[in-house]
Nucleic acid binder design. Structure first.
Lengths: 168, 168
DNA sequence: GCCCAACCATTGGATGTCCTAGTATATTCA
DNA sequence: TGAATATACTAGGACATCCAATGGTTGGGC
């Protein structure tokens, strides 16, 4: 996974698609494949930045979400909805964060079905420090042309709304 | 993970970033998070389309790559480089594809270190059929504005070149 | 007031990805 | 020629994700 390839493998795939008579879907195929690869690159950078803190991206996202919660605590199903992941992934992340002393579980005062999660002091500190690291090492120089960032936000925002992520 | 949220959680995160005094990196943060989520949505669609064929995206990618190989066979390290994944992921995928009778391993004629992988007849057939399904169910209506597809390809292409994926 | 459908969190199983080691084969160079 | 280095693949472990199934808990309809 090291040295650059002589040519863009996605452009190559696009040419293959066109040669096979699938020219009508070749461009969307290339765009979707490019998103897959871009996500992979970005995730690797993020994980590498978070590693010194003992965090993965999944656990960081939960920590960051909690650090912005008005009441300081959040029901697990709410976290699942906001982060758009399966409830089992939240359970898994909370298990590990709790074992690391970064969050606490507590029963919901009125609804016996739901569990609340809350940052510990250590968790709040780590959220701050790891966010600072991500801002400095990843978000401040993402590798996009500055003018393209807004394009991306608009295009992907429309896509996500279209896919049913949110109303608006 | 069902009903749409009342508001865009990524726009929400961007506002939080700005309020914390990180306005300079709020936009790239939002763009990167949007790419993560978009990839997740697209991957779910692709996996769902491939499920009836007994394929995952990882295995499909390998099948498709082999179906375009000029010689019909490919060394494993070449597959690893072209698909941009860890060599162990290729080993894993080939293990399962071989067990399913879709590919064969064979020793390289001159280099005793390398293993060649090759589609079986069943593998070639399945590659064709599953590609047709993806074209019909995912790539033909990706959910992007038609004009945005070319923007995406250009922006993400520049990003990937910048990240060292390929020269050009 | 009671019952059942809906909801919430968890468990266990399958898959995929990466990393670290380890083994075997090639190549380079003193 | 023979040792050091580089390359190719495999083995085992950690982590995350999804799905299906389980066991409590609520709350609306009768």
């Amino acid at each position: 996974m090291g040295t650059p390839l002589p040519r863009d493998p996605i452009a190559e795939a696009r040419r293959n698609w066109e040669e096979q008579g699938w020219a009508d879907v070749a461009a969307p195929m290339a765009a979707i494949t490019a998103i897959m690869r871009t996500q992979q690159i970005l995730l690797a950078r993020i994980e590498s930045t978070l590693k010194p803190f003992g965090l993965t991206f999944a656990r960081y996202e939960l920590l960051a979400l909690l650090s912005f919660a008005r009441k300081g605590s959040l029901p697990m199903n709410k976290a699942s909805a906001l982060l758009q992941v399966h409830p089992t992934s939240i359970t898994n992340a909370v298990d590990r964060l709790e074992r690391a002393g970064l969050v606490d579980r507590s029963p919901h005062p009125t609804d016996g079905r739901t569990t609340l999660i809350e940052l510990t002091t250590a968790g709040r500190t780590l959220a701050k420090r790891s966010t600072a690291a991500l801002n400095a090492e990843v978000f401040s120089a993402p590798g996009f042309d500055p003018g393209d960032v807004d394009h991306l936000i608009r295009i992907l925002g429309a896509f996500r709304r279209n896919a049913g992520d949110f109303d608006g």
